[in-house]
Simulated scan of single mutants.
Amino acid sequence: MKKTVLAFAFSTLTLGGCMTYDPYTGEEKTSNATMGSVIGAIGGAAVGAATSSKSDRGKGALIGAASGAAVGGGIGYYMDRQEAELRNKLEGSGVRVVRNGDQIDLVMPGNITFDVNQTTIKPSFSNTLESVALVLKEFDKTTIQIEGHTDSTGSRDYNQLLSERRAGSVRDFLLNQGIQAGRTRAVGYGPRYPIASNDTAAGREQNRRVELTLVPTQQ
């Protein structure tokens, strides 16, 4: 049974178009769709073998591997396409696209999205958010969590409210672009989750941000 699983995983890697191009590093990398297929194949094979009779265990593993690969690869491929489209639309905008498994994070620095201590999106950033909305409408099988973050300067209560209002402004913008309200959730975290040191001006600038987290609606 182990040989069957390994053989199927190998064929998935060699026949499934296993590499994608990262426009930011200029390097090839294993696509998440391929990795999802391999993981799904192994998991599906284990289930197939466990639920089959002893004489049919090899056949059950193969069937399970095939179905697992289809499910795992389908989600990964969908998110691969969405990631590629977002990178294409947002290149040079200042928005970072970060991939983590089947999750995509869009990190929007506050200095390009909002003026200091303001919650109204800069007019100069509207075109970028419109591009984001176009991709989100095309790939509508994802949910969108919108998170506001601040640095630690000022009172905690003020920063909490500022982060909530900024996340709400981005959500309102996306809704006005036709994104369904049920797909979105806006939340503010204030200074609780810094990504850099608040001891330097450069670090505080990184911490003042809005992040969009995109995840598949069906796992």
Results as ranks from 00 to 15, higher is better:
C18V: 07
E83A: 10
Q160G: 11
D115R: 15
A84G: 15
R208N: 09
N127D: 13
G148I: 08
L129G: 13
H149L: 10
V5Y: 00
M35W: 00
E211K: 00
Y77W: 04
S55A: 11
Q82V: 03
E138N: 12
G154V: 07
V132G: 03
E138I: 08
L86T: 14
L162T: 06
A61W: 00
K141R: 08
F173N: 07
K29C: 05
I104K: 00
R96Y: 04
A84M: 15
S124G: 03
S93W: 05
A66K: 07
Q219R: 13
T213D: 03
Q160C: 07
K3E: 12
D140F: 09
R99A: 02
V107Q: 05
Q177A: 10
A33N: 10
V95T: 02
I195Y: 02
N207G: 09
I104E: 02
E130F: 06
G72A: 11
G73I: 04
S152A: 06
P191S: 05
G72C: 12
I195T: 09
A66D: 05
I42P: 08
A7N: 01
I179K: 14
S52Q: 14
G73V: 01
A9V: 10
G182I: 00
N176Y: 14
G72L: 00
F125D: 02
R171F: 02
D172T: 10
K89A: 13
T217P: 09
A45V: 02
I104C: 10
A181L: 07
S124Y: 01
T200M: 02
T30M: 14
G58T: 15
L162S: 08
F8R: 03
A84Y: 13
T217K: 05
S131V: 08
V71Y: 15
